[in-house]
Design a protein around this nucleic acid. Sequence first.
DNA 1: GTGGTCTAGACCACG
DNA 2: GTGGTCTAGACCACG
Lengths: 123, 123, 123, 123
Amino acid sequence: MVIKIDEYSDVPIYMQIRNQIVMGISSGELKAGEQLPTVRALALEIGINTMTVSKTYQMLKSEGYIMTDRKNGARVRQQIEKTGIISDENKNELRRIVSEARISGVSKKDLQKLVDEYYAGNV
Amino acid sequence: MVIKIDEYSDVPIYMQIRNQIVMGISSGELKAGEQLPTVRALALEIGINTMTVSKTYQMLKSEGYIMTDRKNGARVRQQIEKTGIISDENKNELRRIVSEARISGVSKKDLQKLVDEYYAGNV
Amino acid sequence: MVIKIDEYSDVPIYMQIRNQIVMGISSGELKAGEQLPTVRALALEIGINTMTVSKTYQMLKSEGYIMTDRKNGARVRQQIEKTGIISDENKNELRRIVSEARISGVSKKDLQKLVDEYYAGNV
Amino acid sequence: MVIKIDEYSDVPIYMQIRNQIVMGISSGELKAGEQLPTVRALALEIGINTMTVSKTYQMLKSEGYIMTDRKNGARVRQQIEKTGIISDENKNELRRIVSEARISGVSKKDLQKLVDEYYAGNV
DNA sequence: GTGGTCTAGACCACG
DNA sequence: GTGGTCTAGACCACG
């Protein structure tokens, strides 16, 4: 899986990586149990500091998306907890995005289509 | 329209206000041409620095949501440009949210329902 | 509140600080809403790097014990969520400690007395 | 006695094994003088490196929980020293756990009940 | 070889 | 002035 950093983005690098990995898991590009690159390898590949990647992995770990062990590096968790809940923060963000789209004249249908695509993972 | 600041949120205050005004416009709570409170009044009401509100208004203006004139203060724009486009940033955020929801076991139907509600503005 | 670091401990520094702040909140030494020292001030006082203190504050924040904002620094949260639950990790640790104490010939009464004291916060 | 490794835990494997053996001794599941599996056998059973088990046994030996001889392998010690003392580290950990539980709204009674259960060994 | 921790130092946005 | 992010570099325990 290829991680791409947008250096002009306001989203911190460690968060950009985190988001792409989460989207990779959701789309199936990253399978359960699959090995992630080592901290050093990913840092080298992206051209950033190992601490930054480390921060990403610790975040993903505390969120329950991945597990790390010193022998094998990081792997996608086999069983990610299915709470069935959308966080208040994400609801708020979703509402903001939908609102902005609506004002810009985007139809509800187009929005729904986008959600469909992202949910299916064919992006 | 009542603005509520979440002091626990990581979203900067000026952005929280901006988002609530945008959502107000989308839902129809704020009509086209409607007067917004003065920077000073809003700052006083929320209990924050006038600079922060000023930053919000400048942002809303540059985004084309509101217009300001010396006589009447800030008003919601009559004609907000309908580009029919969702920004790449918002698409990315939407995809992230959908991905996280999907992994958490939220059904596509529930997601679509949420989008419906936010689009309709009955929140 | 005075933070003391044991440099010979296996517990990471950021965790030692975190633990002492949590115990301070529990004992009432740190009141709800009370200001914590700034990242820089605490780092200087303890003689460690600001990053390490920053890590502590971010952890306490994500755990819901404190809140941070750029204007006022860090403060103990007013409302800490009362789940009424002891984490599996803590249960395991507790069981380990009780087991070791029991083997060493510590009476159950003495253990209970210790729990009493720690619960009351008179330490 | 069955040893179970939690691969998601931050506790090192050699420590997880050590803790389970100590808890086994405390609960009576492992009797004084009882034979422990050989390093090789246990490593094979758990599916880990022999070095890791070896580290566990060395630790248990230096702590006075087991003794090893060339002929019989490792055995639970007949006379484990009853100092009647809880180490400062364990006291600190206990205090941390009690503090976290208290903040979470766990009653002292529930905590004491847990200590009772762990002390009795009916877990 | 792996992730985890820590330092010294820097720059940034928010307010 | 505040917390947040990032770098370059180092050392450590685990396995």
